[in-house]
């Protein structure tokens, strides 16, 4: 089937071997690393399509590992966090993880997330919500989905792929409310789950990154992405507002 190579990083060797067995049966080639050091070595010697990273590891934690490899290594990362560790979760997403999953988790769920992340990395994105080939330009802000290049008045904007997609979809549908469900499906290629904050975190990261470029005289920023209570997010703009 597919020859995609996954890297599992978890200190629980038995769990790794069970997951390897499970994911192999689904057609993935799986390597395991039991600590951050091994993970770094494997990442250097081999190229992977995706990494599943456990946050709770003795020694260098998953978060620290994530911090070390970003933004140098761009492979997608799904992190496993203890349940209820919302802070880890948010930190992980902020540090560039692409999605998260509570641990212990149903392997089927993990498989679904892996597939979703891989799917959105693949050139053949699903028809629904596909981004246009032409660059999106609104005022000083320009995004090129083909080259995944984001700029504000010619200054390069550093965005993770999820953040890029969030902004791109919002810009594409500027002036139109996009629900969290829609955004989750388009950006994360999966369905929204209960208490799911992934999209909110991505949106707030994008806001933070845009803020310094659009500061007004009073020190406040023009809020381009607005929250519509109970409905979702909307990119509001007037071309002269987005001057940069």
């Amino acid at each position: 089937m597919s020859n995609e190579r996954l890297l599992l990083v978890d200190d629980d060797k038995e769990l790794c071997s069970l997951l390897t067995e499970y994911l192999s049966a689904e057609g993935y080639r799986v390597d395991s690393a039991y600590n951050a050091q091994q993970a770094l070595e494997k990442l250097q010697s081999q190229s992977y399509s995706l990494m599943v990273l456990d946050i709770m590891m003795p020694g260098t934690t998953g978060l620290e590992l994530l911090q070390q490899i970003r933004p140098r290594i761009t492979l997608p990362v799904i992190m496993l966090t203890g349940r209820g560790d919302e802070i880890d979760r948010i930190l992980g997403l902020e540090m560039g993880a692409d999605d998260y999953l509570g641990k212990p988790c149903n392997p089927r769920e993990l498989l679904a997330r892996i597939r979703a992340v891989l799917r959105r990395m693949s050139p053949q994105a699903p028809v629904e919500g596909r981004l246009p080939e032409q660059p999106l330009v609104i005022g000083a802000l320009s995004l090129n989905p083909a080259t995944r290049d984001a700029r504000v008045a010619d200054q390069l904007l550093e965005l993770t792929s999820a953040e890029f997609n969030v902004l791109a979809y919002l810009m594409q549908h500027a002036g139109q409310v996009l629900s969290k469900e829609q955004l989750t499906r388009w950006v994360l290629h999966r369905d929204l789950t209960a208490y799911d904050r992934a999209i909110d975190v991505h949106v707030s990261r994008v806001r933070q990154k845009l803020a310094p470029y659009f500061e007004q005289a009073g020190g406040e920023s023009v809020e381009m992405i607005k929250t519509v209570r109970g409905q979702g997010y909307i990119f509001v703009y007037t071309a002269d507002q987005v001057q940069g």
């Binding site: 629980d12 038995e14 769990l15 069970l18 641990k103 988790c105 149903n106 392997p107 089927r108």
Partner: peptide
């Protein structure tokens, strides 16, 4: 976690 994967 192991049990769940085994169940899977």
């Amino acid at each position: 976690a192991r049990l769940q994967v085994s169940a899977g």
